[in-house]
Amino acid sequence: MATGNAAPLNSIDIRYLRYYEPDSSYRVRATVKLLLNEQPFRMPTSDGTSKA
């Protein structure tokens, strides 16, 4: 998250990140609908590459 020109954070910001234990009360209930016969696409990433 702090590498590359398009990174959302810089090295100073990274030190302010705090991580917490998972809390199941923030769980989102959702239904997934699989799409058949859809073409995959490439998603751009913050480091300038893309993933399929």
Rank of each mutant, 00 (worst) to 15 (best):
M1P: 11
A2F: 10
A2K: 07
A2L: 09
A2T: 13
A2S: 14
T3R: 12
G4H: 07
G4F: 07
G4E: 09
N5W: 08
N5D: 15
A6H: 15
A7I: 11
A7D: 10
A7F: 13
P8Q: 07
P8A: 09
L9N: 03
L9G: 05
N10S: 08
N10D: 15
N10M: 06
S11P: 09
I12D: 10
I12L: 11
I12N: 12
I12K: 14
D13L: 03
D13Y: 01
D13C: 02
D13H: 04
I14C: 04
I14K: 10
I14L: 11
I14P: 01
R15G: 02
R15W: 11
R15T: 07
R15E: 07
R15D: 07
Y16A: 02
L17K: 06
R18S: 04
Y19T: 05
Y20S: 01
Y20C: 01
E21S: 09
E21W: 10
E21Q: 12
E21C: 04
E21M: 07
D23M: 00
D23R: 00
D23F: 00
D23N: 06
D23V: 01
D23G: 00
S24M: 06
S25N: 13
S25Q: 13
Y26D: 13
Y26W: 00
Y26H: 10
Y26Q: 13
R27T: 14
V28W: 04
V28P: 06
R29V: 15
R29W: 15
A30M: 09
T31S: 12
K33E: 04
K33N: 04
K33H: 14
L34V: 15
L34S: 07
L34P: 09
L34N: 04
L35H: 12
L35Y: 08
L36C: 04
L36H: 07
L36G: 00
L36Y: 08
N37T: 03
N37I: 00
N37Q: 09
N37S: 09
Q39I: 05
P40L: 00
P40S: 03
F41C: 03
F41G: 00
F41E: 06
F41N: 02
R42I: 10
R42Q: 08
M43C: 08
P44F: 01
P44G: 01
P44S: 01
P44V: 01
P44H: 04
S46E: 12
S46L: 13
D47A: 02
D47G: 08
G48E: 05
G48Y: 04
T49K: 15
T49H: 13
S50L: 02
S50P: 04
K51W: 14
A52R: 08
A52E: 12
A52G: 10
A52D: 09
A52P: 15
